[in-house]
Design a protein around this nucleic acid. Sequence first.
DNA 1: CTGATCTACAACCATTTGGTTGTAGGATAA
DNA 2: TTATCCTACAACCAAATGGTTGTAGATCAG
Lengths: 113, 113
Amino acid sequence: MVVDQFSDAELDRLFQALADATRRDIVHRVTVGEYSVSGLAALYAMSFAAVQKHVAVLERALLVTKEKRGREQIVRGNHEGLQKARRLLEEYEEIWRQRADRIADILAEENSD
Amino acid sequence: MVVDQFSDAELDRLFQALADATRRDIVHRVTVGEYSVSGLAALYAMSFAAVQKHVAVLERALLVTKEKRGREQIVRGNHEGLQKARRLLEEYEEIWRQRADRIADILAEENSD
DNA sequence: CTGATCTACAACCATTTGGTTGTAGGATAA
DNA sequence: TTATCCTACAACCAAATGGTTGTAGATCAG
């Protein structure tokens, strides 16, 4: 069980960041292509500052990176955060699978009485 | 791209539920074994009502189920929520992989000039 | 240089979240 | 029956969240 390879705070930020539809959409878009912050802001029915905050949340969660290019700030997907979140869920599912196996074993033993 | 097979609200609840260390711990524990709500409450340095609320959040997110047994309420892990969350992240990672392949293709074409 | 564009950040506001305490009801044990 | 245990739920509070507007600094275009 390697569940605790991530810090609580890190995982809090990760899942918190993913718990908003606008931010999930941003993650999706910047994984496919590149966007400036204002390019992203143009996509949503909210202010530039609001989108800027969403990007900041994603950046702290390691789900995107920003890189300055001229007067623009280019946002790109960051595989790191995605990987960490998926790995934790996979570990939980592995535990689930082991438990299912254990129960199957118990039932098998009962049957062999 | 089968990204949108889940509703936004459903995913909001799912990731929001996972964005708290106490709740992640509860998910872990009730996947391994069974706990009553008060059994869980005994594990954490917070009130019974607080733990009760955490369980309710997990239940709405389909990460646990509750079943009445006598005067106790038994909490068990629910694979459904876990699966949904993991699948979404896997789809994102698949998009990421495709993007990496596409870039590799572009680079290959440039090299063959 | 001037004006337009892109970004950063502060201040503010309403709502949600994560916790508390208190009250009440159903199930169990003595 | 009575006392105890487990749960549900309301009311409350502080802090975080998700949004806004406004101001100001860089950078680019003309």
